[in-house]
Design a protein around this nucleic acid. Sequence first.
DNA 1: GGGACGCTAAACGTCTGACGTTTTCCCCAC
DNA 2: GTGGGGAAAACGTCAGACGTTTAGCGTCCC
Lengths: 251, 251
Amino acid sequence: MPAQPPPSGTSAPVAHLRVQRVRPAYRQVADELRTQILAGALPAGTRLPNEAELGRAFGVSRSTAREALRVLSSQHLVETLRGVQGGTFVSEPDPARVVEDVGSALGVLVMTPRLHVSDLLEARLLLEPAAARLAAQRADAETVEAVRAAAAAPRDDRDPSGFVGHLDFHTTLLMATGNLMLTLMGQPVNDVLRTRLRRAGVEAREWDKVDACHREIAEHIAEGRAGDAEEAMRDHIVELRRLYERDGFWA
Amino acid sequence: MPAQPPPSGTSAPVAHLRVQRVRPAYRQVADELRTQILAGALPAGTRLPNEAELGRAFGVSRSTAREALRVLSSQHLVETLRGVQGGTFVSEPDPARVVEDVGSALGVLVMTPRLHVSDLLEARLLLEPAAARLAAQRADAETVEAVRAAAAAPRDDRDPSGFVGHLDFHTTLLMATGNLMLTLMGQPVNDVLRTRLRRAGVEAREWDKVDACHREIAEHIAEGRAGDAEEAMRDHIVELRRLYERDGFWA
DNA sequence: GGGACGCTAAACGTCTGACGTTTTCCCCAC
DNA sequence: GTGGGGAAAACGTCAGACGTTTAGCGTCCC
């Protein structure tokens, strides 16, 4: 929907609709392949025919087949490799990619009046205390260790690369619930919030307080005190919210 | 990552890494445009140069520029219109598209061992009672009416098209919170669950019970009884979960 | 005999140019 | 004034050619 509706204004204020009379061939090919992939007819790892053959199979040119593949690959349904033994392969589902994509989409939406940063904070307030409770109830020794490590990890705005395992505390906690769905819902929110926060300066003293909260929550989880973990997390998020709300962070 | 690692096994059991030495041009173009769009340099509604010019601007051919546009359009960042006055336009952010995409991604993940239907049910159990509480606290007259209508709407497995306003009760309730983020998190989950459920037969008698629950919740919300709404919704979801768990719905 | 080097072939990546198709707009005839 | 038909701008599609990447294999030299 282009934002430049022709200034016709002749008579009817009908909603300015745009219909796609015919779906382009590349879209039809993409849709067909997507359907087959989602239906499980093409399991992950399957190698599709090469582009020329694929085009022939659908009765379109190689360029059109390629455009269809670009669509699928940008949705992470297939991946392409070059070289001999290269080709297009059906992708393994990857939660990390989903989190990325959702985060990106949220980043766009949060710039509109439809979605407010306060909405994200509210959602988080709803999600993370419950996650802390679940983590406390379920975490095994290894998971507890990961949570403790994340809480103890030094906060470093500069790239702390070298530590793949160095994940954000909130991320680690979501994963500690053992329920991937909670990570999928919470992580994109956290990503967006973190991005928005980095843009403003926050005193180091406040970060120390945050870290202290994290360690307290980690201990509650380590000891299996579900109620305490939930409560501490709720307080923590409320505190964080105050931090976000200061200075009129969002319009 | 194709699932067919070459059976080399010569010497080193190093993780089978695949690096992209150079990013293809179409990807670079797409990334550059995406960056500009996300940064707000190209606001929604902006009309991009035509494909030939765009290619010239990036020093690539029209085909390459087209592939970049296919990538962006499949991520709903741009839309393409044909005809004179056609072209490629930066899209308006659309929550419904996000919900669709996330739902699709969830549908894929839920077929893997990483994400279980029970995870979705747990997430829902966490989300929807809270949503019911918020809705009861905030819903205005119009919203209450919408919730009531959704609860009263006749359940019809056959396409009830003709009623655009006929939305699922749970969807309506999520929207009634006034927090779009809750819809974004909850709706894809519900979509996946509904899809999985339709595959099995459930007796009409049970649907009647479900509808009764919906109406009860709607009334709690209409009367602003937040606690009751939350409680009723929790019971309802637990009940639904039992329905899902019957018959070994998932492996 | 073994290992390094380099060639080869399969696929994707990119370019060029042409033509078809859709859709709007405008002008002209009635 | 109104309706219809053509022109024009863009995207959609095709065909063919050549470049680039990469695994595999053969060869040659230690």
